[in-house]
Amino acid sequence: MKSDKWKPWALLAPSLTAVFLLLVIPVCFIVVYSFWLRAPSGADIPAFQMGNYAKFFEDFFYPGILIRTIRIAFETVLLCVVMGYIPAYFFYRSESRYKRVFLLLIMLPFWISFIIRTMSWINIMGDSGLINHFLLKIGLIETPIAMLYNEFSVLMGLIMYLLPFMVLNIYVSLEGIDKSLLEAARCMGCTEWQAFREVTLPLSLPGVSAGCLLVFVLTAGTYLPPMILGGPGNDMIANLIFKRVIGTLDWPFGSAISVILLSLLFVIVWTYNRYLGINQIFKSFQGK
């Protein structure tokens, strides 16, 4: 064979250049900027000082938002597992000829704009929304119940966004299970439930944990549901970044918060990869 060592590099050149220039360098910039100073005039002054980080941890306000973000992310993960496992199992075991249609339908929200799916909760939970209209009509309540702008409505928005990711991850790992293992278990006298508990469930756990990681990371990095469906007390860390960067143009502080968020997620992803391996997550995007 001729020496074609240079070939892969030529093929990779455009994408590596793009990712390096547009991702690696900009992220390094955030780190550098997070040490800079913001002059009272609004100009950014190059410096090396920890002031922005000190400001974040100076009282309980900002760490509180960080803790809230982690809590909401855990709640979302939990709700997504509870709501997502059974439908994924249903697709896996179903022998209906409409199985493909079911699967297509659960994928459909991926194609529908995040902002539309989020704002539509106002149509449903608003004062003259679907639920209040229905309850008023049947005479269960006299005045509309306020359902929006609290943590519950934020969670609804998040689940709407993230549930398909969870279902897909679980389904992909269920599909990977050799069905003859199940038959073997049944032959050896397991009941349907025992076979599920001893064979299917443990073998599907890689998919569940991959889904959990993905949902956690995506929740921690989003600001839209709290912004549209949350009240003043429901801001998450990404909202804080948005407000500092777009609202008050405080770039150094915004950068410091971004670095804090990035480090938190890095620790989580790194730990996950160390013990469980990250490749399972990428599988779900390929298995269509």
Partner: peptide, 21 residues
């Protein structure tokens, strides 16, 4: 992994980073 990493980096950070650059 490097080329796939944008999936795991929060979009909000990506947004800020590129804008800052």
């Amino acid at each position: 992994t490097l080329l796939l990493s944008p999936i795991m980096i929060p979009e909000v950070v990506l947004g800020v980073a590129l804008l800052l650059f």
